Simulated scan of single mutants.
Amino acid sequence: MKILKLLVALLLAAQCQFVMADDNPADAIAMVEKGLAYMQKNGKDALVQEINNKTPDFINGSIYLYVRGLDGIVIAHPINPKLIGKNMLDLPDADGKYYRKEIIALAKSKGKGWVDYRYNNPVSKQIENKTTYIFRSNDVILEAGIYKGK
């Protein structure tokens, strides 16, 4: 029985790695663009409500859309609602990088782009390389990231 459980665990781990390997930067960009189009049509409050209600349009496997204010406060997050209303600019990633500050700086300077950091992957339960595409629209930043493995 223990061997069977071990084999199932190994199979699941292999599947998770396969799924994560499918993460594509274009999918993160598409998720942000979908959110931007929705916000332009329906308004910021409607987008925030849809994300916080875990609407499937804004969650695609491990890629999901979230919204942060230019002050760093999380406005919408479909995976971890405990983050909503929090400003975590002074909390670094697993390697000590203040990537949230980098997100804010990039949003204010260029308006869009990628930020790399290391973060706990909720699927694999491991610290992994992650890259997040950000796009500033007025006073908010739309973000969607992908895991790149260890």
Rank of each mutant, 00 (worst) to 15 (best):
A14G: 15
A14W: 07
A14M: 13
Q15D: 06
Q15T: 15
Q15Y: 13
Q15S: 14
Q15F: 14
C16A: 12
C16G: 01
Q17K: 08
Q17L: 07
Q17W: 05
Q17S: 12
Q17C: 03
Q17P: 02
Q17F: 02
F18E: 06
F18V: 01
F18K: 12
F18T: 03
F18M: 10
V19Q: 03
V19M: 06
V19F: 03
V19S: 06
M20L: 15
M20D: 04
M20W: 00
M20P: 01
A21P: 00
A21K: 03
A21Y: 02
A21F: 03
A21S: 09
A21E: 00
A21H: 07
D22A: 14
D22M: 13
D22H: 06
D22S: 13
D22L: 10
D22K: 12
D23V: 01
D23S: 11
D23T: 13
D23L: 04
D23F: 01
N24R: 13
N24I: 00
N24D: 15
N24Y: 09
N24K: 14
N24E: 12
N24V: 04
P25N: 11
P25C: 15
P25V: 14
P25Y: 12
P25E: 11
P25T: 13
A26R: 14
A26P: 00
A26T: 10
A26D: 15
A26M: 10
A26N: 12
D27S: 09
D27V: 02
D27C: 00
D27A: 10
A28Y: 09
A28S: 11
A28F: 08
A28E: 06
A28G: 10
I29Y: 04
I29G: 06
I29M: 14
I29Q: 13
I29C: 13
I29D: 05
A30N: 14
A30R: 08
A30T: 04
A30S: 14
M31R: 09
M31E: 08
M31F: 06
M31H: 07
V32A: 13
V32Q: 08
V32L: 08
V32G: 12
V32E: 02
E33I: 02
E33W: 00
E33G: 01
K34Q: 12
K34L: 09
K34N: 05
K34C: 04
K34H: 11
K34G: 08
K34D: 02
G35C: 03
G35W: 04
G35H: 02
G35Y: 02
G35R: 06
G35I: 05
L36I: 01
L36R: 05
L36D: 08
L36H: 07
L36F: 01
L36Y: 06
L36M: 08
L36C: 06
L36W: 07
A37I: 02
A37D: 12
A37S: 14
A37N: 11
A37L: 12
A37Q: 12
A37M: 07
Y38G: 04
Y38I: 02
Y38A: 07
Y38L: 03
Y38T: 01
Y38E: 03
Y38Q: 02
M39N: 04
M39H: 05
M39Q: 11
M39W: 03
Q40K: 14
Q40V: 05
Q40N: 11
Q40W: 00
Q40G: 01
K41V: 06
K41P: 00
K41N: 13
K41Q: 15
K41A: 15
K41F: 00
N42I: 01
N42K: 06
G43L: 08
G43N: 10
G43D: 06
G43K: 11
G43M: 10
G43I: 10
G43S: 09
G43T: 12
G43A: 11
